[in-house]
């Protein structure tokens, strides 16, 4: 059974339909990249999978928890879904370690010692073990983003969502975040990521999804999507604009 199952999802903002019937399945251990033009609905899809946006119709199921338009069972689902945003959104009033420990403590109810060891473990995973006591705004953007990844990982999610996590970063900081994600993928994390880093998507993602006008326009193995795009829209997207 797939970890993430999206079926016939429609999402409207007022009168504007942003997602027009999305079907998507992500198997355990799979890395799925979502690419597409600005405004094609990529972020909205991720936010729906995390329940940050309510869907009008369709069904989303993550490791056995489903959300429907009523929005029930959200918290259970969110425990299994980590999301990392473009703007890192660390809590400015908490130190790095506290940022990571907070949700395991109050949401999962783990002991302080357990939360601490989870924080140390995930910080080490993103290569920031020594910044446990730092304040978020003393870190570089790339470091903050890695802490945000660690914060999500500490919840031991079944799937991680990444929404253009390197877009706000200077080019020289992008690499360290991408490397972190690549390591995560190698360790078997199920990942769904929106990205403009085509090289990264092609190398790391098993599957790539091209979204266009609120629909899954084309999808398949990354090699095929980048090597032999079928639709003219995808060809134009890959050919124009991006290196």
């Amino acid at each position: 059974m797939p970890v993430v199952q999206v079926e016939g999802v429609h999402k409207r903002f007022g009168a504007v339909e942003v997602l027009k019937g999305i079907d998507l399945a992500v198997e355990g251990g799979e890395v799925v990249a979502i690419i597409g033009r600005s405004g094609s609905g990529k972020s909205t899809l991720l936010r729906c999978i995390n329940g940050l946006e309510q869907i009008q119709s369709g069904r989303i199921e993550v490791s056995g928890h489903s959300i429907d338009p009523s929005g029930k069972g959200l918290r259970e689902l969110r425990k299994d879904v980590g999301i990392v945003f473009q703007s890192y959104n660390l809590f400015p009033h908490l130190r790095v370690g506290e940022n990571i420990m907070l949700a395991p403590r109050i949401v999962l109810g783990v002991s302080k010692a357990e939360a601490r060891s989870r924080a140390e473990e995930t910080l080490a995973e993103v290569g920031l073990a020594e910044r446990f006591d730092a304040w978020p705004d003393n870190l570089s953007g790339g470091q903050q983003q890695r802490v945000a990844i660690a914060r999500s990982l500490a919840m031991r999610p079944k799937v991680m969502l990444f929404d253009e996590v390197t877009s706000a970063l200077d080019p020289e900081l992008t690499g360290e975040v991408l490397a972190t994600m690549e390591r995560l993928a190698r360790h078997g994390m199920t990942m769904l990521l929106v990205t403009h880093e085509m090289g990264f998507a092609r190398r790391v993602a098993t599957t790539t999804v091209f979204m266009h006008q609120g629909k899954v326009w084309e999808m398949g193995p990354s090699e095929r999507i980048f090597g032999a795009p079928e639709t003219p829209e995808l060809r134009q997207f890959l050919g124009g604009g991006l290196k």
Binding site: F85, N89, M155
Partner: peptide, 10 residues
């Protein structure tokens, strides 16, 4: 975005 970060952590 702070609120969403909290919500997304369940």
């Amino acid at each position: 975005s702070q609120i969403e970060a909290g919500l997304s952590l369940a």
